[in-house]
Design a protein around this nucleic acid. Structure first.
Lengths: 347, 347
DNA sequence: CTGAAAGCGCTTACAG
DNA sequence: CTGAAAGCGCTTACAG
C-alpha cells in the first residue's frame, strides 16, 4: 500500500558495481574527461531503464540550492498577473526550477508575513511586485539578507536593484495624446493615490502631454481600497458631475476603468461621442464591451520572458560578480471604438 | 557578500548546552510530558530571539515529506482556476504547505510531461484537473504509484478516487428550466465535444430538462481547440442560421459563451428579445456586458476550501487507513437581463 | 526527563 | 580514470 521505495544512487552503485562518486559525476554532467565512455553509457542506460531521478531534498540539503523561485504578485488571481505567472512557469520548468506563487494584495503586512515564511527556506530567488510602502523591506532583503531579487512592475530610485517594468511614462503620454488626436480637449486622468512607480509615472505621462498641449488638468485619485467598490464609483461619479466639460478619460488601471465604465453606463454617457476612453492593461472585457474600449496593452510574453530569464541568469552568475538586470519594455496602444477613430483632431 | 550562514539546531545546542534531540522535540511539539517546562521555555525563547527556522530540505530528506502540493490546473491563467488557486494558497500556507501550479492546457502529453517532472520528487499530494483521455494515467498515479491525489472539476466512474466537483447535471437542468420559464421554448445547448464529466453532465442536464418539458433538442458541440477561435464562431454562426427558431441558448462554459456573444453581436441579435442566454461560470465580463449575461456561478471559495482542506486531511490520515474524500457542490443561477426576467413562462 | 548516534540521499574535496 | 569518506541539518528509535 506504500509508495514504491524510491531508487537511490546507492542502489545503482550496488547493482552496477560502480562507485557512488562516479555515478554522481555522470548524473551531473561532470564526467567529461574523467569517466570512460563505456561507464558513462552503462550508467546512463541503467538510469534510463529504471527511471531514476535524484532526490531533490538531498541535493538541496547538500548544495544549499532548492531550484525554487517565489513569485510574490500583487494578486495572482488578477488576469495580468496570472498570465505572467503562466508564461514564467513553463520556462522555469524547462530549466529545472519550480515557482511558488503568492499574493500580497498590496498589503505591506501580508508581504512581510510571506517573506518571513520563505526566509531562509531554501528559496533561490524572489520575483516581487512590492506593495505600497515596502521600499525599506526591499532594500533589506536585497542588501542585508543578500537574496536574489527581481522587482516586477515597479521600481525604486533610491537604491540599485534588478527590475522589469513597463515604460509607463511614455505609454501614458502617448495615450493622452491619442485622446487629443481623436478630437477630445478636456482630458481627465483617473488614477490611484499611490507612490508605486507605475501609477506615479502614468500620471506624470498624462501631465506631460496635457502641458505640452496646453490643456487643463482634471485628475482624480482614488484610494487603493476603493478601486473596485461602490465608494469608488461615487467618487468618479461626483468627479464627472463636478467637471461636466470632461470629454476624455485615461484610466490608470484596468480595474479602475471597469469601475468607471459602470459609472458611465449608469449615467448613460455615450462613448466615445460624449467621453472618449482609454484604459491601461488589456482584458477581454474591453474588446467585448459596447463600444470596445481602447487600451494600452502590456507585452505579457516579453515581460514574463525577461522576468524569468533575467532571474535565471542572475542565479547562474551568482557565483561570479553580481550584475544588475534592468529592463523597461514598451506597451502598445490598441485603438478601439471608445475613441473616435474617424474624427482626427481638428485643432 | 554571501548570505548569512543560517543557524542550525547544532548551533542552538552548543549555545544552550542542550542536546539536539531535546531541541528537535521541542520544535516539533513532541515535548509534552518529556521535557521540563523550564527547558522548553529556554529553547523557545532562544529560537524566537535568533529567528531560527528549520531547514526544510533536511526535514524533507529525513521524513520523506516535502510539505509541497502540486496543483495541476487546466489553465492557471483562466480566471476560474486562478481564483481557486489563490484561495487554496492561503489555507495551504497557514498549514505550512507550499503549492506549485502548472497548466495542462487540456493536453494529455503536457500532463504526462508534468507528472513525470514531479514524479518521485518529494511532492506530498496532487490536485489535478485531468485533461481529455487521462483516465488510465490517473488510475496508475493513484493505484500503482500510490500518490495522494485529489481530482478537481471532473471525476471518473470507472474507479474510486477523491474529488471535488460541481453538481453540473442539476445546474444545467435548472438553467435550462430558467430559460424556459423566461418564455423561451426553442432551447439550444452549445457545448464541447468532450468526455470530461462536467461537459457531459451539463449536456445531460440540458437534455433531461428539455425532455421533461417535451421540447426539441438543438445542440452544437465544438472541438476543444475551437472554443476561442474564428473557426468556433463560424460553427456557432451557421448553427444559428440553420435553426433560426432557436430563442434560448445555454453555453457550457464561459469561453464558449464569450465567443458566442461575439457571434450574436455581429449578427445584431437582440438579447434577450430574440435569444435568451445563460452561461456557465461567472466572469466580470458577464456582469458588464450589454445586456448583463445570466450565469451559473460556481462557489469558488467553497470549492477551493474543500479542495485544500480535503487534501490536507488525506495527508494527515495517510498514516492510518485510506479514506475517500468526495464532494459535490451546488452552483447558483444568477439571473440577469440576458433572460427576460419580467416575462414569466406563459405556457 | 534527556542525550548519543544512526541515517535520509546526495555532492565533492581528496587520494590514488 | 575511479572510489572511500565526510558532511549538509534534520528526526527518531534506543538507552539510560
Amino acid at each position: 500500500m506504500k509508495k514504491k521505495k524510491k531508487i537511490s544512487i546507492k542502489d545503482i552503485s550496488k547493482e552496477l558495481g560502480i562507485s557512488i562518486t562516479t555515478i554522481s559525476f555522470i548524473i551531473n554532467k561532470k564526467a567529461e574527461n574523467k569517466i570512460s565512455k563505456e561507464v558513462i553509457k552503462k550508467v546512463e542506460d541503467y538510469i534510463e531503464k529504471v527511471g531514476y531521478t535524484p532526490n531533490s531534498s538531498a541535493q538541496s540539503l547538500r548544495t544549499g540550492k532548492s531550484k525554487t523561485i517565489v513569485f510574490m504578485a500583487e494578486d495572482i488571481s488578477d488576469p495580468f498577473f496570472s498570465a505572467i505567472a503562466k508564461q514564467m512557469e513553463e520556462i522555469a520548468f524547462d530549466n529545472g526550477y519550480k515557482i511558488i506563487y503568492c499574493s500580497t494584495e498590496n498589503k505591506k503586512e501580508r508581504a512581510i508575513e510571506l517573506l518571513d515564511l520563505f526566509k531562509d527556506r531554501q528559496v533561490d530567488a524572489f520575483i516581487i511586485t512590492p506593495p505600497e510602502g515596502f521600499e525599506e523591506e526591499m532594500k533589506k532583503l536585497i542588501y542585508e539578507q543578500h537574496q536574489t531579487v527581481m522587482v516586477f512592475d515597479r521600481y525604486y530610485k533610491s537604491f540599485e536593484h534588478n527590475y522589469v517594468v513597463l515604460d509607463n511614462l511614455r505609454c501614458a503620454k502617448d495615450a493622452t495624446r491619442s485622446l487629443y488626436d481623436s478630437g477630445k480637449k478636456q482630458l481627465a486622468f483617473i488614477g490611484i493615490n499611490s507612490e508605486l512607480s507605475p501609477i506615479v509615472h502614468r500620471y506624470e505621462g498624462y501631465l506631460e502631454s496635457i502641458r505640452s498641449l496646453e490643456l487643463q488638468e482634471f485628475s482624480l485619485m482614488l484610494k487603493f481600497e476603493e478601486i473596485k467598490t461602490e465608494q469608488g464609483r461615487k467618487k468618479i461619479s461626483s468627479f464627472l458631475d463636478k467637471y461636466p466639460q470632461i470629454d476624455g478619460i485615461l484610466f490608470a488601471s484596468n480595474n479602475l476603468a471597469i469601475n468607471g465604465l459602470r459609472v458611465l453606463k449608469q449615467k448613460n454617457t455615450r462613448i466615445p461621442e460624449e467621453i472618449g476612453i482609454i484604459s491601461f492593461d488589456e482584458r477581454d472585457i474591453f474588446e467585448l464591451y459596447s463600444p470596445p474600449i481602447s487600451v494600452v496593452s502590456q507585452p505579457i510574453e516579453k515581460l514574463a520572458g525577461e522576468l524569468i530569464k533575467g532571474t535565471l541568469s542572475l542565479l547562474q552568475s551568482k557565483a561570479g560578480k553580481s550584475e544588475i538586470y534592468q529592463k523597461t519594455l514598451e506597451g502598445t496602444l490598441i485603438p478601439r471604438e471608445s475613441i473616435s477613430l474617424k474624427n482626427p483632431a481638428s485643432s
